[in-house]
Structures are given as C-alpha cells and as structure tokens.
Simulated assay, not measured.
Amino acid sequence: ITQEQFILASQSLHLQRASCEAVYPVGLYGWRKRCLYFFLLVLFVTMIVNLALTVWIIRVMNFSMDGMGNLQLNHDGLHLEGVSEFQMPLYVSEIQSRRDSVLVLGSERNVTLNARNHQGQLTGQLTVGPEGVEAQCQRLEVRSRNGGRLLFSANEQEVTMSTERFTVTGSEGAIFGRSVETPLIRAATFEDLRLESPTRTLSMEAPRGVEVSAAAGTLKISSRKDLQLESTEGEILLDADSIRLENLPLGIAAASAGKAFRKQAVYEVCVCPSGKIYRSPAESVSTCQAMSSICLWS
C-alpha cells in the first residue's frame, strides 16, 4: 500500500470513530435549576430577616460593652437599675441596694430566702407570705445597728432578750402560759402595774426573798379564796406608819355566845391556834379565847 493510501485510510478511520462517541451536556437545566434558585432566594431572605431581627433585638435591649440596658457588668458584680422580675431561682452571694434607695423584694405569693451548705443541704429559710413571716433555723438573732449588740435570740431551748427594757403596749398586757423568771417587773412611768391570774393561782417565789414596793402609790393584793404569805426560814415583816386589817370577823367566846355585847368602839386582835386572825371586843382583860366560834370553825 502506498503512503498516500495509508494516510487517507487513517484519516477516514479517525473520522468514523469520532462520529460514534456520545455527547453529554454539562450543568443544571429545567426544574432542577429553578429549585436551586428558589432555595438560594429563600436562604437570602432568611439571612436578611435574621440580621434585621438581630439588629432590632440589640436596639431594643440596649446592648453595649458594659452590659444590657439597666443591667451593667462591673468588676464587683452586676448593677441593675429599676424593677426586675426573675422567673427562675436566683443564686447570689450578696444583694445590696443603692445608698439613697431601699431594697424591695416583692412577689404575688411569698418571698423565700434559702441558705444552703456546700453539700446543697438547706440550713436556713426565711419565708414572707400573706399569712405571716416564718423563719426556720437553728438560732435566730436580732442585733443592734451600732456595735452589733445582741438584742434578741431564740433557739429550741430558750428565748433571750438582752434589751434594757421590754415594753408591752397592749391593753390586755402580756400573757404567759408557763412560769416567768425575771429579776425585775416594773410598770411604765405614771402607769399601774397589775399581776393577775383570773382562773388560777398567782405565785411569786424567790430563793432570797420577794420584794413588792409601790414608791408613789398604793399596793393592793386581792384574792377570791386564800391569800398565803409564807416564809420557810425567815420572818414576814409589815413595816408601815399604819397597818389596817379591815373586815376581820368578830369572835365571841363559846361560853358567852348567848350574851350580846354592847356597841364597841375598841377591839383587840386575836390569833387562833390555826393562825386565823379575828377581832374581839376589848375589855379590862383579854377576851381572846381559843374556844372562840371563829377558831372552832376555822
């Protein structure tokens, strides 16, 4: 075969092979292309709306480098101006108000302050509710503003008041269900002091004596039944310019019970063996008799 024929044959074979290869288009066409553009448009709109909302929130909440609105972040904590509302529990170590304003904690139901230890156990609780104030702790103390002097303390065993004066201004006074131990009970100035037990016995005891004095008034002791003055080791001393024993019963000797005494102006005080005191008409000699009617029925 000649060289020219070989070249022609090679060219014809190459052209035939190239015509037999399939041609595939590259890219997105039809509904796929439209969907892609639609998703891109939605994503772009979402980004614009998100950016606009972010700018609006920053504008409304007043975000800054120091904090957010009335809430400022300082080196010593948070500084909050105005009224704040917390929907969830708040855990802080200290809450302080401004120097020229008061601190107000408000709630529609109650306000509860809890104290816990490092293990999370409740050690103290203060609840301010519509029905009262309740404190649960091992010891409750009230101290003065100057010097921190203890004024009031209470625990499970006792209640202690360290004030110089305890004043009760109610019209009914103070009511104690059990015994009261105190070194001094004194009424206010120009007021009367009254110790009363309407249905029970009133008892005053002391290991070294009981002193009852009225410096500028009268002392009145009244009882429905018996009035007992008892001293186990000492004496009972009635020291006054005048001592009056009113409404003493008139004693008449049993032997002369039927005799009528004339109107008498002077009497003598007699004491029965039982200790009862009565009066008897004064005569030239003593008319006190152990067999008096008063002593027999005492």
Score class of each variant (00 low, 15 high):
residue 1 I to N: 15
residue 3 Q to E: 15
residue 5 Q to M: 14
residue 5 Q to E: 15
residue 6 F to V: 12
residue 10 S to W: 10
residue 12 S to W: 11
residue 16 Q to P: 03
residue 17 R to N: 03
residue 20 C to F: 10
residue 22 A to K: 04
residue 28 L to C: 08
residue 28 L to G: 08
residue 29 Y to Q: 11
residue 30 G to W: 11
residue 32 R to I: 07
residue 32 R to E: 09
residue 34 R to Q: 14
residue 35 C to K: 05
residue 36 L to F: 09
residue 38 F to T: 08
residue 43 L to N: 14
residue 44 F to M: 09
residue 44 F to P: 01
residue 44 F to Y: 07
residue 47 M to F: 15
residue 48 I to R: 07
residue 48 I to K: 06
residue 49 V to H: 08
residue 53 L to P: 10
residue 58 I to P: 13
residue 59 R to F: 12
residue 59 R to W: 11
residue 61 M to F: 13
residue 69 G to Y: 06
residue 76 D to R: 05
residue 76 D to F: 04
residue 76 D to T: 09
residue 77 G to K: 02
residue 78 L to M: 11
residue 79 H to W: 07
residue 79 H to C: 11
residue 80 L to W: 05
residue 83 V to Q: 14
residue 84 S to G: 06
residue 84 S to V: 08
residue 88 M to P: 03
residue 99 R to M: 06
residue 100 D to I: 02
residue 100 D to A: 10
residue 103 L to S: 03
residue 105 L to R: 05
residue 108 E to Y: 11
residue 109 R to A: 13
residue 110 N to S: 12
residue 112 T to S: 06
residue 112 T to A: 05
residue 113 L to H: 06
residue 114 N to P: 05
residue 118 H to V: 10
residue 120 G to N: 02
residue 127 T to M: 09
residue 128 V to W: 01
residue 130 P to C: 08
residue 130 P to H: 11
residue 131 E to Y: 10
residue 139 R to E: 15
residue 140 L to Q: 02
residue 142 V to A: 09
residue 144 S to K: 07
residue 146 N to Q: 15
residue 151 L to F: 15
residue 154 A to T: 08
residue 159 V to T: 15
residue 161 M to C: 09
residue 163 T to G: 12
residue 165 R to M: 13
residue 168 V to E: 05
residue 170 G to C: 03
residue 174 A to H: 12
residue 181 E to A: 10
residue 182 T to E: 01
residue 184 L to D: 08
residue 186 R to N: 11
residue 192 D to E: 07
residue 194 R to E: 03
residue 196 E to F: 07
residue 200 R to D: 10
residue 201 T to L: 14
residue 210 V to G: 05
residue 214 A to M: 06
residue 216 A to V: 05
residue 216 A to N: 10
residue 217 G to L: 06
residue 220 K to E: 05
residue 221 I to P: 09
residue 222 S to H: 04
residue 222 S to A: 10
residue 223 S to W: 01
residue 223 S to H: 04
residue 224 R to G: 14
residue 227 L to D: 05
residue 230 E to R: 08
residue 230 E to L: 15
residue 231 S to E: 02
residue 232 T to I: 03
residue 235 E to S: 12
residue 235 E to G: 06
residue 239 D to W: 08
residue 242 S to L: 12
residue 242 S to V: 11
residue 242 S to M: 14
residue 242 S to T: 07
residue 251 G to V: 00
residue 253 A to H: 01
residue 253 A to P: 03
residue 257 A to C: 07
residue 258 G to N: 04
residue 259 K to S: 11
residue 260 A to R: 13
residue 261 F to G: 00
residue 264 Q to F: 00
residue 266 V to F: 01
residue 268 E to K: 00
residue 268 E to D: 02
residue 268 E to S: 01
residue 275 G to F: 02
residue 276 K to Q: 12
residue 278 Y to M: 01
residue 281 P to N: 01
residue 281 P to K: 00
residue 281 P to F: 01
residue 282 A to M: 00
residue 283 E to L: 00
residue 284 S to T: 02
residue 287 T to K: 02
residue 287 T to H: 00
residue 288 C to L: 01
residue 293 S to I: 00
residue 293 S to A: 04
residue 296 L to Y: 01
